[in-house]
Every structure is written in structure tokens, then in C-alpha cells.
């Protein structure tokens, strides 16, 4: 670390100042007003800023709504599925393209192209593709997979995709066991099958960007480091797993934070692809906020849900920040 003169220190803060002022107003000021709305009686278009009695009643109501419980479950499951898939595939593509091959630019642009398309329209296309009667299921017949399955005495493969309300790996019994008061849970906690196609569609759209992030990171790693490692006799797999991927950790963190912001706030894609889904199997908090605020005009409830979305993001950010604090000290 460079020894810092007070003037230099001052200068650094000066560069940050415009961003900090804007952030204070546009983010913290607005969050503050949202939080305030969530404590009021405002549930029609007529503004009513009187405080609710008891003050936290809107939050209490919200957490006992089966729909909101389903939203929390869905966000959690979707985030894991989507971040896992998108990071893995994006990194894979970046590593494949990080070498001398012909038509490299062409591949890169094709993988990136889905990211350029409007979510509203890709949501519709994916809804068609996952239509159980006319969509991708036809390929199971076409490719002979179903004939093979039938020959083996099994049922043909015809998933219902987004129309399937099933929840698999339900953990309710376990939860009741751990937490006897857990009967307030009004929904099944598990993996909603209908979320899988949504995660696939989102991965398709975002993995190209993840690839770009990693290509950017790989571009920052100098050729000297690679050469040095190769002189040491490290094979390609070793080179990536023990030298390059660890070096990409900061990029991985950026990627996960960006994907987290997508998965927590995902709206257009789900809205166009499956809406709230059968029995709220694909509902997400952003749709909840949207419908409560602008369709039901329940501004207090919508604001409360958005505050919860914000708090949820700190589950990942706070550990990350603690981590950066620690590495700085070491």
C-alpha cells in the first residue's frame, strides 16, 4: 500500500464525492421514503401517510400471506439454480474461447447476442419453447428418446415445464421438526419444478454476459503469468484450476453480485414467460411488488415487499464486505 499524504487522501474522496451525493439522494433518500410508505395506511390511490397501528402490521400481514412465502422460496431456489448454471456455463465458455481458434469473435458474439434482446420478447419465445404440447417436448419424440424409453418399459418423457405445479424435495416435515411453531408456513418448501425452465431461460440470456466478464478478467491476466506457469510444467487443466481461476476470484464475485441483482429483481422474463405460475410456482417478489403497488394500489404492502427484497440482498453482500475487510488487513 502506498503511503498516503493527506492531500492525496482528500483527492480520492473528492473523486468519489459526486457519486456519493447522487447515491445519497437517489438511493438512500428514495429507500427511506419507500420504507416510510411501508409503515403507513396507504392502500388506495389517494395518498394516506398516516402511520399504521400497530406500526409493523403491514409486514406481519405480508409474511403470513401464502403468496409472499412462495415468493421468498422461489427467489431462494431460483437464485441458487440460476447463479450456479450461469456462472458455470459462462466460465466454461470463456475458457473455451480464451485460446487461439478461428472464428472466435463469431462464437463470442453469438453467445452474447441473447443478452441484447428484450426480456419481454424472449420470455414469450421461451413460453412457446416450453409449451408441453408444441414446444421442445416434440424433440423428445423426434430424437427417438421417447421410443427408447417406451421400449425400455418406461413412461415417455413429457414434462409439463412451467405448467407443472409440483414441488419436489419438500422440507416441510424437517422444518416442523426443527421448529415446532413452523405451522405458520402455509406453503410447501422445496424446489418448484416450474422454476427450472425459468432458470434455463435466464441462463441462456445472461451466461453470455458472464462469459464476457470472464473474458475481461482473462484479458487482465498477463501472458507472463501463463508463460511462467507453463514453464513450471503445469498442464492446461492445472493451469486453469490452480492459477487462473483463483486469480479470477474478484471477477467471480462481481459476476455473482451482478447475477444476484438480476435474480432478486427478475420481472420481465417471468412476467412474459409464466406469470405467477400455477399456484404461485413461478411468482417472484418483483411481480408481487408490481401487482400490489400498481394493480391493487396497496402502496404500503408493495413498499414493504421491496424493502424485504433489499434486505435479502445483504445476505450476500455483507459476508462479501467482511471478506474484503479481512483481506485488506492481512
Amino acid at each position: 500500500m502506498i503511503k498516503q499524504h493527506w492531500l492525496v487522501q482528500h483527492k480520492g474522496a473528492l473523486i468519489l464525492l459526486p457519486s456519493l451525493i447522487l447515491t445519497t439522494i437517489f438511493i438512500y433518500g428514495f429507500i427511506g421514503s419507500s420504507f416510510f410508505f411501508s409503515l403507513t395506511n396507504w392502500r388506495t390511490l389517494a395518498i394516506d401517510l398516516s402511520l399504521r397501528d400497530p406500526l409493523w402490521q403491514t409486514y406481519a400481514d405480508m409474511f403470513t400471506m401464502p403468496r409472499f412465502q412462495a415468493d421468498l422460496r422461489n427467489t431462494f431456489v431460483f437464485t441458487l439454480l440460476f447463479i450456479g448454471l450461469a456462472t458455470g456455463i459462462g466460465l466454461g465458455l470463456a475458457i473455451l474461447l480464451d485460446r487461439q481458434i478461428s472464428q472466435k469473435g463469431w462464437f463470442r458474439n453469438t453467445f452474447l447476442f441473447p443478452y441484447a434482446l428484450s426480456f419481454i420478447v424472449t420470455g414469450v419465445v421461451w413460453r412457446w419453447i416450453f409449451n408441453p404440447e408444441t414446444g421442445i417436448n416434440l424433440f423428445f419424440n423426434f430424437l427417438g428418446i421417447n421410443r427408447a424409453l417406451e421400449a425400455a418399459g418406461m413412461d415417455p418423457l413429457s414434462p409439463g415445464w412451467t405448467t407443472d405445479p409440483t414441488i419436489v424435495f419438500s422440507v416441510n416435515q424437517l422444518l416442523y421438526h426443527l421448529w415446532p411453531d413452523g405451522r405458520v408456513l402455509q406453503i410447501e418448501w422445496g424446489i418448484p419444478v416450474a422454476l427450472i425452465p425459468i432458470a434455463i431461460a435466464a441462463t441462456w440470456q445472461l451466461s453470455g454476459f458472464v462469459m464476457a466478464m470472464y473474458l475481461g478478467g482473462l484479458g487482465g491476466i498477463s501472458s507472463q503469468i501463463r508463460d511462467a506457469a507453463q514453464i513450471d510444467g503445469a498442464g492446461e487443466i492445472r493451469l486453469y484450476s490452480s492459477v487462473i481461476i483463483p486469480m479470477l476470484n474478484p471477477i467471480t464475485i462481481s459476476t455473482i453480485i451482478i447475477l444476484l441483482h438480476v435474480s432478486l429483481k427478475i420481472f420481465d422474463l417471468v412476467f412474459a414467460m409464466s406469470g405467477v405460475g400455477p399456484g404461485f410456482a413461478t411468482d417472484v417478489p418483483a411481480i408481487f411488488v408490481f401487482e400490489m403497488m400498481f394493480k391493487a394500489a396497496r402502496y404500503n404492502l408493495g413498499s414493504a415487499a421491496s424493502i424485504v427484497m433489499l434486505v435479502a440482498s445483504s445476505v450476500v453482500i455483507v459476508p462479501y464486505l467482511i471478506h474484503t475487510f479481512k483481506t485488506r488487513e492481512s
Binding site: 388506495t44 403468496r67 399456484g279 404461485f280 400490489m292 394493480k295 391493487a296 394500489a297 396497496r298
Partner: peptide
């Protein structure tokens, strides 16, 4: 009112 309209949609979904 709109809040009931939304509640009906949600109840139907379930």
C-alpha cells in the same frame, strides 16, 4: 376495489 380484484386473482391462482 383494486385490492379485492388482486386478492381474487391470487385466490384463484391458488
Amino acid at each position: 376495489p383494486a385490492d379485492f380484484q388482486q386478492a381474487l386473482n391470487d385466490a384463484l391462482t391458488d
